[in-house]
Design a protein around this nucleic acid. Structure first.
Length: 168
DNA sequence: GTTCTAGAAC
DNA sequence: GTTCTAGAAC
């Protein structure tokens, strides 16, 4: 995060870095300089920061992948691995050797992935972020294609299937 | 979070 | 027999 070589974008409020183990062709993390431990610690005080993080994510997409046909999603993991609030910005090809198991897939393709926009609206309306019960169970759900909903029996078969949704 | 690998699934 | 996953160790 501090290492300039890792920084894709930086301003007074946030820094963007590449995910160390990208789960798609483009996968960045937007981190605020002011450390927020997790979504549980988020209050209305952070509303403008959350909006800024989202806007920066959109800007990096435009700058780096603007001419690609890739679709992107911006969001937070319900139960993050790293305890420092970070916004995932990830292209929807999921074309990456680092995507290896069911947990990887389901953390980006079930309700475990909380849309940035929904988080912002929740903070706007409720003043905080509440996460539903049963998040760990979502990671064990069967593998389902995010584009056509087809069920795939294994990771290798899912990966092969995903190819047909890649933009040409 | 990743790597490693036993044994389940095919 | 080979592929693949899931749990332990880190």
């Amino acid at each position: 995060m501090e290492d300039p070589k890792m920084q894709v974008y930086k301003d007074e409020q946030v820094v963007v870095i590449k995910d160390k183990y990208p789960k798609a062709r483009h996968h960045w993390l937007v981190l605020p300089w002011t450390s927020i431990s997790s979504l549980k610690a988020v209050t209305k005080e952070h509303l403008e920061l959350l909006k800024h993080m989202h806007a920066v994510g959109e800007k990096v997409i435009a700058d780096v992948a603007g001419s690609s046909k890739l679709r992107f999603r911006l969001g937070y993991h319900a139960i993050p691995s790293m305890s420092l609030l970070h916004l995932h910005v990830i292209s929807q090809d999921f074309d990456s050797p680092c995507l290896k198991n069911k947990k990887h897939w389901n953390s980006f393709n079930t309700e475990y992935f909380l849309e940035s926009q929904a988080v912002i609206e929740m903070v706007q309306e409720a003043g905080r972020v509440t996460v539903q019960d049963g998040m760990p169970e979502l990671l064990k759900l069967p593998l389902r294609c995010h584009e056509c909903q087809k069920l795939l029996p294994s990771i290798p078969q899912l990966k092969e299937h995903l190819r047909k949704h890649w933009p040409k």
